[in-house]
């Protein structure tokens, strides 16, 4: 078996190496015969969304043209610094059109198509670096902004019940571990809180519905803690790049923080559906159900047409 595996992986490496080696030649032939550069062939040949954007991303990341390499490098840095704007996208398109010597009087639609792809690709990277800032900001009880957000989470989830104190056993009703949620955000930091708050604020019916289901006497779980674990899943999928299909298909402009929050809401709601469907014996089955959930989501995201919509259908509690 091991030998077979080695053979397979060697074979794979062989084809990949051959492809990388021959790519410039193939591109050259195609360019001569179609009189279009690779970027144009992708834009005209692929449907907009993830299919087109992923290929443009691959093409730009593996470019050998020094000027293009430089442009990509600039865009990467801008995304890291979170300074990508519409103007920078226009500028990048203009530069690429010049470098590739494309006549935009003939190819009128090309700049817009390429601009859309650049917005998605580097908007996504910018989103990742914004998420990283949020995640590495630890929840701080001395920060009034953080405190306000935490209290708001309560009022959005339990509009009819007053919280009796900042330190209270009541937090356990919405699924925190003890009397003070501050220590529960851990490695997800403010990202965990903002995800939950967005869910509770933007989809109050769905969030309260999931909260009620989490309080089920047999199939219950800790709403907030599970939410923070789902934040982690969402974050990992985004970091790994697997979630690109969804974000490239769903974003009209720059994917932003709200796009990520929406992604989280979808995942949390879907997790709740699966949890109930699995009829777990008790909470100790959490990791088992969660890995099954992750497997399902990963499979869905591998489809280039993946698009998660937050159209929540509320079933029985």
């Amino acid at each position: 078996m091991l030998v077979n595996f080695l053979k397979m992986s060697l074979l794979n490496t062989f084809w990949t190496t051959l492809y990388i080696w021959l790519r410039p030649l193939v591109k050259w032939i195609l360019r001569r015969t179609t009189r279009l550069c690779e970027l144009q062939r992708i834009c005209y040949g692929e449907e907009k969304g993830a299919l087109r954007t992923l290929q443009i991303e691959y093409s730009l990341s593996n470019t050998r043209t020094p000027e293009l390499k430089k442009a990509v490098h600039v865009l990467n840095n801008k995304a890291k610094d979170k300074t990508i704007t519409q103007d920078i996208v226009y500028y990048a398109v203009f530069a690429i059109v010049r470098i590739k010597n494309i006549n935009i009087k003939i190819h009128k639609r090309f700049p817009e198509m390429l601009g859309g792809c650049i917005m998605r690709i580097w908007g996504y990277r910018q989103m990742l670096s914004r998420l990283e800032d949020l995640r590495t900001t630890a929840y701080d009880s001395n920060n009034s902004e953080h405190e306000e957000k935490l209290l708001k989470l309560w009022s959005c989830l339990q509009p009819k019940i007053t919280l009796e104190g900042r330190i209270s056993k009541q937090w356990q009703e919405i699924g925190f571990q003890g009397n003070d949620p501050a220590t529960d955000f851990r490695g997800m930091g403010m990202l965990g809180l903002e995800n939950l708050l967005y869910f509770a604020e933007t989809h109050p019916n769905a969030a309260q519905h999931v909260l009620l289901r989490s309080q089920h006497p047999v199939y219950g779980y800790s709403f907030a803690i599970v939410g923070i674990n789902i934040s982690h899943t969402a974050y990992m999928l985004a970091q790994e790049g697997l979630a690109k299909t969804h974000f490239y298909n769903s974003s009209k402009g720059f994917p932003d923080q709200n796009a990520f929050h929406q992604f989280f809401c979808y995942l949390f709601f879907e997790f709740d559906v699966l949890w109930r469907h699995e009829k777990p014996k008790d909470i100790m089955e959490f990791n088992h159900v969660k890995s099954k959930f992750e497997k399902n989501i990963r499979a869905k995201l591998k489809d280039p047409m993946a698009l998660f919509k937050c159209h929540f259908v509320l079933e029985n509690i």
Binding site: Q177, D184, I225, I228, N287
Partner: peptide, 11 residues
């Protein structure tokens, strides 16, 4: 160890 979340169940 930078991405720890509260444990629901066990690891």
């Amino acid at each position: 160890i930078t991405h720890i979340t509260p444990t629901q169940g066990f690891n």
